[in-house]
Protein backbone atom coordinates (compact mmCIF):
# COMPACT_ATOMS: atom_id res chain seq x y z
CA UNK A 1 0.00 0.00 0.00
CA UNK A 2 3.04 2.28 -0.01
CA UNK A 3 2.84 5.00 -2.60
CA UNK A 4 5.85 6.54 -4.29
CA UNK A 5 6.74 10.19 -3.94
CA UNK A 6 6.70 12.65 -1.11
CA UNK A 7 3.34 11.49 0.16
CA UNK A 8 4.95 8.41 1.66
CA UNK A 9 7.58 10.14 3.73
CA UNK A 10 7.72 8.39 7.07
CA UNK A 11 7.03 10.60 10.01
CA UNK A 12 9.74 11.17 12.60
CA UNK A 13 8.33 11.20 16.08
CA UNK A 14 9.52 14.74 16.73
CA UNK A 15 8.14 15.98 13.44
CA UNK A 16 5.28 18.49 13.79
CA UNK A 17 1.80 17.35 12.80
CA UNK A 18 1.13 20.68 11.10
CA UNK A 19 3.71 22.83 9.45
CA UNK A 20 2.67 25.94 7.51
CA UNK A 21 5.50 27.76 5.72
CA UNK A 22 4.80 31.19 4.20
CA UNK A 23 1.23 30.26 3.42
CA UNK A 24 -0.86 32.82 1.60
CA UNK A 25 -4.44 32.59 0.44
CA UNK A 26 -5.78 35.13 -1.99
CA UNK A 27 -9.38 34.93 -3.18
CA UNK A 28 -9.70 35.68 -6.82
CA UNK A 29 -12.43 38.26 -6.47
CA UNK A 30 -12.50 41.89 -7.61
CA UNK A 31 -10.74 43.34 -5.79
CA UNK A 32 -8.72 40.27 -4.66
CA UNK A 33 -9.05 39.44 -0.97
CA UNK A 34 -5.94 38.55 0.98
CA UNK A 35 -7.45 36.16 3.49
CA UNK A 36 -4.12 34.82 4.80
CA UNK A 37 -0.69 36.46 4.59
CA UNK A 38 2.73 34.96 5.37
CA UNK A 39 1.40 32.37 7.77
CA UNK A 40 4.06 30.33 9.53
CA UNK A 41 2.72 27.88 12.04
CA UNK A 42 4.00 24.64 13.50
CA UNK A 43 1.87 22.40 15.69
CA UNK A 44 3.56 19.47 17.43
CA UNK A 45 1.92 16.12 18.09
CA UNK A 46 -0.31 16.27 21.15
CA UNK A 47 -0.60 20.05 21.17
CA UNK A 48 -3.86 21.88 21.89
CA UNK A 49 -4.00 25.16 20.00
CA UNK A 50 -6.84 27.62 19.76
CA UNK A 51 -7.11 30.04 16.87
CA UNK A 52 -9.02 33.19 17.70
CA UNK A 53 -9.88 36.35 15.90
CA UNK A 54 -12.85 38.47 14.90
CA UNK A 55 -15.13 37.29 12.12
CA UNK A 56 -13.73 37.90 8.68
CA UNK A 57 -10.16 37.73 9.99
CA UNK A 58 -9.28 34.58 8.07
CA UNK A 59 -9.94 31.94 10.76
CA UNK A 60 -12.20 29.85 8.57
CA UNK A 61 -9.80 30.08 5.64
CA UNK A 62 -7.02 28.80 7.89
CA UNK A 63 -9.22 25.94 9.06
CA UNK A 64 -10.12 25.03 5.47
CA UNK A 65 -6.46 24.94 4.55
CA UNK A 66 -5.49 22.93 7.64
CA UNK A 67 -8.32 20.48 6.84
CA UNK A 68 -7.28 20.19 3.16
CA UNK A 69 -10.65 21.54 2.12
CA UNK A 70 -8.87 24.45 0.42
CA UNK A 71 -5.43 24.99 -1.10
CA UNK A 72 -3.04 27.80 -0.25
CA UNK A 73 -2.36 30.22 -3.11
CA UNK A 74 1.34 30.03 -2.24
CA UNK A 75 3.50 28.52 0.46
CA UNK A 76 3.82 24.98 1.77
CA UNK A 77 1.62 22.96 4.06
CA UNK A 78 3.06 19.77 5.52
CA UNK A 79 0.59 17.52 7.31
CA UNK A 80 2.32 14.64 9.11
CA UNK A 81 5.31 15.54 6.94
CA UNK A 82 3.31 15.08 3.71
CA UNK A 83 3.66 18.00 1.34
CA UNK A 84 -0.01 18.49 0.54
CA UNK A 85 0.51 21.06 -2.22
CA UNK A 86 1.64 18.27 -4.55
CA UNK A 87 -1.45 16.16 -4.03
CA UNK A 88 -4.23 15.87 -6.56
CA UNK A 89 -7.86 16.10 -5.58
CA UNK A 90 -8.20 12.41 -4.96
CA UNK A 91 -5.12 12.10 -2.75
CA UNK A 92 -6.14 15.17 -0.79
CA UNK A 93 -9.51 13.56 -0.11
CA UNK A 94 -7.85 10.43 1.26
CA UNK A 95 -5.28 12.29 3.36
CA UNK A 96 -8.11 14.43 4.69
CA UNK A 97 -10.25 11.42 5.48
CA UNK A 98 -7.49 9.47 7.19
CA UNK A 99 -5.60 12.16 9.10
CA UNK A 100 -8.09 14.88 9.90
CA UNK A 101 -11.17 14.77 12.11
CA UNK A 102 -13.66 17.61 11.73
CA UNK A 103 -16.04 19.04 14.31
CA UNK A 104 -18.36 21.67 12.87
CA UNK A 105 -20.41 24.39 14.48
CA UNK A 106 -23.58 23.00 12.83
CA UNK A 107 -22.72 19.38 13.82
CA UNK A 108 -23.44 18.05 10.29
CA UNK A 109 -25.18 14.90 11.44
CA UNK A 110 -27.49 12.85 9.22
CA UNK A 111 -30.82 13.01 10.99
CA UNK A 112 -32.30 9.98 9.26
CA UNK A 113 -29.51 7.71 10.48
CA UNK A 114 -28.83 6.39 13.96
CA UNK A 115 -26.12 7.85 16.16
CA UNK A 116 -24.06 4.71 15.56
CA UNK A 117 -24.42 5.00 11.76
CA UNK A 118 -23.37 8.64 11.95
CA UNK A 119 -20.16 7.64 13.65
CA UNK A 120 -19.57 4.70 11.31
CA UNK A 121 -19.88 7.00 8.26
CA UNK A 122 -16.68 8.68 9.46
CA UNK A 123 -14.83 5.44 8.70
CA UNK A 124 -16.29 4.12 5.47
CA UNK A 125 -13.99 6.03 3.11
CA UNK A 126 -10.83 5.24 5.08
CA UNK A 127 -10.17 1.60 4.30
CA UNK A 128 -10.96 0.68 7.89
CA UNK A 129 -12.02 -3.00 7.78
CA UNK A 130 -15.75 -3.48 8.14
CA UNK A 131 -15.39 -5.62 11.24
CA UNK A 132 -13.49 -2.85 13.06
CA UNK A 133 -15.93 -0.07 12.35
CA UNK A 134 -18.65 -0.81 14.84
CA UNK A 135 -16.29 -1.53 17.79
CA UNK A 136 -14.42 1.70 17.00
CA UNK A 137 -17.67 3.67 16.76
CA UNK A 138 -19.02 2.25 20.00
CA UNK A 139 -15.71 2.92 21.75
CA UNK A 140 -15.70 6.52 20.46
CA UNK A 141 -19.29 7.05 21.61
CA UNK A 142 -18.44 5.66 25.02
CA UNK A 143 -15.39 7.92 25.10
CA UNK A 144 -17.60 11.00 24.67
CA UNK A 145 -20.13 9.68 27.16
CA UNK A 146 -22.89 8.63 24.73
CA UNK A 147 -22.65 4.86 25.06
CA UNK A 148 -26.35 4.81 26.01
CA UNK A 149 -27.51 6.79 22.94
CA UNK A 150 -26.17 4.46 20.24
CA UNK A 151 -29.53 3.68 18.61
CA UNK A 152 -31.03 7.17 18.89
CA UNK A 153 -31.68 9.51 16.01
CA UNK A 154 -29.58 12.68 16.25
CA UNK A 155 -32.68 14.89 16.05
CA UNK A 156 -33.85 13.44 19.37
CA UNK A 157 -30.66 14.50 21.17
CA UNK A 158 -29.80 17.80 22.85
CA UNK A 159 -27.33 20.20 21.22
CA UNK A 160 -24.53 19.13 23.53
CA UNK A 161 -25.20 15.47 22.82
CA UNK A 162 -25.24 16.10 19.08
CA UNK A 163 -21.86 17.79 19.26
CA UNK A 164 -20.58 14.79 21.23
CA UNK A 165 -21.77 12.50 18.43
CA UNK A 166 -19.89 14.68 15.96
CA UNK A 167 -16.78 14.50 18.13
CA UNK A 168 -17.10 10.72 18.34
CA UNK A 169 -17.35 10.61 14.54
CA UNK A 170 -14.22 12.79 14.28
CA UNK A 171 -12.08 10.65 16.60
CA UNK A 172 -13.30 7.14 15.74
CA UNK A 173 -10.70 6.70 12.97
CA UNK A 174 -7.85 8.02 15.19
CA UNK A 175 -6.94 11.12 13.15
CA UNK A 176 -3.61 12.92 13.48
CA UNK A 177 -5.40 16.23 13.83
CA UNK A 178 -8.77 17.14 15.28
CA UNK A 179 -10.05 20.36 13.71
CA UNK A 180 -12.91 22.10 15.48
CA UNK A 181 -14.66 25.00 13.79
CA UNK A 182 -16.57 27.09 16.37
CA UNK A 183 -17.54 23.86 18.15
CA UNK A 184 -19.53 25.68 20.81
CA UNK A 185 -21.09 28.30 18.56
CA UNK A 186 -24.52 26.68 18.72
CA UNK A 187 -24.42 25.69 22.40
CA UNK A 188 -25.41 27.39 25.66
CA UNK A 189 -22.78 28.18 28.27
CA UNK A 190 -23.38 25.07 30.41
CA UNK A 191 -23.08 22.77 27.44
CA UNK A 192 -20.10 24.75 26.17
CA UNK A 193 -18.36 24.07 29.44
CA UNK A 194 -18.89 20.31 29.20
CA UNK A 195 -17.73 20.18 25.56
CA UNK A 196 -14.60 22.18 26.41
CA UNK A 197 -13.97 19.80 29.29
CA UNK A 198 -14.25 16.91 26.84
CA UNK A 199 -11.71 18.55 24.51
CA UNK A 200 -9.29 19.05 27.38
CA UNK A 201 -9.77 15.44 28.39
CA UNK A 202 -9.12 14.22 24.83
CA UNK A 203 -5.99 16.34 24.74
CA UNK A 204 -4.67 15.36 28.16
CA UNK A 205 -5.66 11.72 28.39
CA UNK A 206 -5.70 10.59 24.74
CA UNK A 207 -2.93 12.90 23.55
CA UNK A 208 -4.95 14.15 20.57
CA UNK A 209 -3.58 17.04 18.55
CA UNK A 210 -6.33 19.62 18.70
CA UNK A 211 -6.96 22.88 16.84
CA UNK A 212 -10.04 24.82 17.98
CA UNK A 213 -11.11 27.82 16.00
CA UNK A 214 -13.33 30.24 17.88
CA UNK A 215 -14.17 33.90 18.21
CA UNK A 216 -15.19 33.30 21.85
CA UNK A 217 -12.44 34.67 24.11
CA UNK A 218 -13.46 32.43 27.02
CA UNK A 219 -13.25 29.30 24.89
CA UNK A 220 -10.00 30.43 23.33
CA UNK A 221 -8.40 31.15 26.69
CA UNK A 222 -8.73 27.56 27.85
CA UNK A 223 -6.17 26.25 25.38
CA UNK A 224 -2.54 25.96 26.48
CA UNK A 225 -1.50 27.72 23.30
CA UNK A 226 -3.43 30.44 21.51
CA UNK A 227 -2.77 32.09 18.18
CA UNK A 228 -4.57 35.15 16.87
CA UNK A 229 -5.52 36.05 13.35
CA UNK A 230 -6.29 39.64 12.45
CA UNK A 231 -6.62 40.78 8.84
CA UNK A 232 -4.92 37.62 7.65
CA UNK A 233 -1.82 37.99 9.85
CA UNK A 234 -1.17 35.33 12.45
CA UNK A 235 0.40 36.18 15.79
CA UNK A 236 1.28 33.97 18.74
CA UNK A 237 -0.01 35.08 22.10
Amino acid sequence: MTLPGPATVMIESDQPVVELIDVERVFDTTPPVHALREINLSIAEGEYVSVSGPSGSGKSTLLNILGLLDRPTSGTYLLDGIDTSDLNDRRRASVRGQRVGFVFQAFHLLNTRSVLDNVIIGQIYNRIPRSERKPRAVAALERVGLGHRVDFRPDRLSGGERQRVAIARAIAHSPSLLLCDEPTGNLDSGTTESIMALFEDLHRVDGLTLVVITHDEAVSARAPRTVNIIDGYLTEQ
Binding site: M1, T2, L3, A7, T8, M10, I11, D80, I82, R90, R91, A93, S94, V95, G97, Q98, R99, L110, T112, R113, D117, I121, I124, Y125, N126, R127, R130, S176
Partner: peptide, 24 residues
Protein backbone atom coordinates in the same frame (compact mmCIF):
# COMPACT_ATOMS: atom_id res chain seq x y z
CA UNK B 1 2.33 4.64 11.19
CA UNK B 2 -0.23 5.74 8.61
CA UNK B 3 0.41 5.86 4.93
CA UNK B 4 -1.16 7.94 2.21
CA UNK B 5 -3.33 5.39 0.47
CA UNK B 6 -6.32 6.63 -1.48
CA UNK B 7 -9.81 6.58 -0.07
CA UNK B 8 -12.09 3.84 -1.12
CA UNK B 9 -15.85 3.32 -1.10
CA UNK B 10 -16.56 -0.39 -1.24
CA UNK B 11 -19.53 -1.88 -3.08
CA UNK B 12 -21.22 -2.89 0.17
CA UNK B 13 -20.80 0.63 1.57
CA UNK B 14 -22.09 2.10 -1.67
CA UNK B 15 -25.22 -0.06 -1.51
CA UNK B 16 -25.71 0.67 2.21
CA UNK B 17 -25.37 4.42 1.82
CA UNK B 18 -27.56 4.56 -1.29
CA UNK B 19 -30.34 2.49 0.24
CA UNK B 20 -30.18 4.59 3.41
CA UNK B 21 -30.31 7.72 1.24
CA UNK B 22 -33.40 6.45 -0.55
CA UNK B 23 -35.19 5.45 2.62
CA UNK B 24 -34.47 8.76 4.27
Amino acid sequence: MKQAVTSRFSMIDLVNESVAGLFS
